[in-house]
Design a protein around this nucleic acid. Sequence first.
DNA 1: ACATATAGTTGTAATTTGCAAATAAAATAA
DNA 2: TTATTTTATTTGCAAATTACAACTATATGT
Lengths: 148, 148
Amino acid sequence: MENIRELFQVMTRRFGLLNKNCCSIDDVDISLVQSHILYEIDKREHPSMQQVAEALGMDITTFSRQIQNLVKKGLVKKTPLPEDRRVYTLSLTTEGKFIATTIDREINRYLEEVFSHMTEFEKETVIRSIKLLNECMAKSSVCCKPLF
Amino acid sequence: MENIRELFQVMTRRFGLLNKNCCSIDDVDISLVQSHILYEIDKREHPSMQQVAEALGMDITTFSRQIQNLVKKGLVKKTPLPEDRRVYTLSLTTEGKFIATTIDREINRYLEEVFSHMTEFEKETVIRSIKLLNECMAKSSVCCKPLF
DNA sequence: ACATATAGTTGTAATTTGCAAATAAAATAA
DNA sequence: TTATTTTATTTGCAAATTACAACTATATGT
């Protein structure tokens, strides 16, 4: 039996690199964390700071500062919630949405390239496998709580 | 069809977190990058600085300093290569080997926990899928060159 | 011997990180 | 209603991480 961790280590590192490489759009520089933040805000509808920070397993203070950067860059908008003015609601600006979409397209294009080396059946199998894996990781009690 | 990037994003993030959580052994604190470095040195036999830095897609200067830290912690040994004295050969000390092994066991234990939510057949399928995926990523021309 | 290339290190300055403490707005208790 | 506690977010600060440019030291080619 092959070393299972090895497989994960390699895959994870590769995808991390991929993400990193795909993060300079136009003349806007986006760090890896920032791209994760954009992705997460884009996916949810008007999440709070806490929610996103927790989803990413980030310290809230670090997150706060990253959001400040993204706001300064004009990619994220922070709107105070009327019902509870302690809470800020996050959303992407038009520019932010554009960046997020571009990154997404970039990564998906790469993934398609990778899948092009497989048969349609293999591709389906791999995708179903990862889906299953995610579900089982979510079930797990040991670790990785902060996600979903 | 589900969003493929989403699947990868979640999985990668989870595994990254897992790695991060598993990095405090005894009273030695190991950062995520450092654990990757230990892993890579352990896997290869007496690699050079360049080789490991490249495998991890790290800037060589950053890597150099990380190695200095690991040497200071007594986890890594740097041996000049007799044939070419510009080159340093990296290896783990006994302590370093112990730490690397402990992290490895920790992560494998978690992975086993995750797989315990699957049938044996599903497990086999998932592992084969990830293996295939890695192979196809390696074939790809677009991105992720620095690895293997 | 001289120029050039390679492996690794340091100077330095910017960025990122997270703990502790502060602010500010609910929610709850009295 | 006021006082107390809890919750969401922000700052102070000091340490760790990063990467570019410049440097040292060794090896290779002419």
